[in-house]
């Protein structure tokens, strides 16, 4: 009976409850706040669809992040207006307009990271996936994923260090 119980699958509602916030953070880091909502919706609808086929012992979080990764890419391809797919940073300071009192500088710094770095940071630090899993999603070796992650963090730190205004937030989201 015990063994049988351990392989049963939770109601999908519990999956949303448990992983919804993490997936939204990942989408926000990868796409920016505005487009994250649509990517989240696409991710969970697709996940719901294929949930019965997911092996019961699968790592649900890694599975969701993998779907989110694809949905974010689809989203960028369809919209073609966000920074993700390009390898050079956008020229204009982006105004992602994060609601509330968030540090707009950070959001902007994330938006300026090259896509691979941003994805590696999101999947490793937000989703908590080991670099082996991050590499499986991004392609390439775990070492390359680790390098992208740590380069991303380094870039974020140095971008923020250059900003004396970091301690108080600007709701406008502009960087000078």
């Amino acid at each position: 009976m015990k063994a049988r119980q351990s392989i049963t699958k939770k109601p999908f509602e519990a999956v949303v409850q448990e992983h919804g916030a993490t997936v939204l953070r990942v989408c926000r880091a990868v796409l920016g706040v505005h487009d994250a909502d649509d990517a989240w919706s696409d991710t969970f609808l697709a996940a719901l669809q294929s949930y019965p086929d997911l092996p019961p012992e699968a790592n649900v979080q890694a599975w969701l992040v993998t779907i989110a990764h694809r949905k974010c890419i689809d989203h960028v391809r369809a919209g073609g207006r966000r920074a993700l797919p390009v390898d050079s940073p956008p020229e204009q300071p982006s105004r992602l307009g994060i609601p509330g009192e968030g540090h707009a500088e950070l959001v902007d710094a994330v938006a300026h990271l090259p896509p691979k770095q941003r994805q590696a940071v999101a999947y490793h630090y937000f989703a908590g996936l080991p670099y082996v899993d991050v590499a499986a999603i991004l392609g390439g070796t775990p070492e390359a994923a680790r390098r992208a992650g740590s380069d991303g963090v380094k870039a974020l730190r140095s971008a923020l260090v250059e900003l004396p205004a970091l301690t108080h937030s600007s709701s406008k989201g502009e960087i000078r």
């Binding site: 949303v16 919804g20 916030a21 939204l24 953070r25 926000r28 880091a29 706040v33 994250a36 909502d37 989240w40 919706s41 969970f44 609808l45 719901l48 994060i98 609601p99 509330g100 009192e101 968030g102 540090h103 707009a104 950070l106 959001v107 994330v110 940071v121 630090y125 937000f126 963090v153 974020l156 730190r157 923020l160 937030s169």
Partner: peptide, 28 residues
């Protein structure tokens, strides 16, 4: 260290999630 660095991305997260979950239910 990094997760606290990334914390600003959490602004309004709960509110957004509530409406996203409602949207998921109706999309589904």
């Amino acid at each position: 260290d990094v997760t606290s660095l990334l914390e600003p991305l959490d602004a309004g997260l709960e509110l957004a999630l509530a409406s996203l979950r409602a949207r998921l239910a109706s999309d589904a």
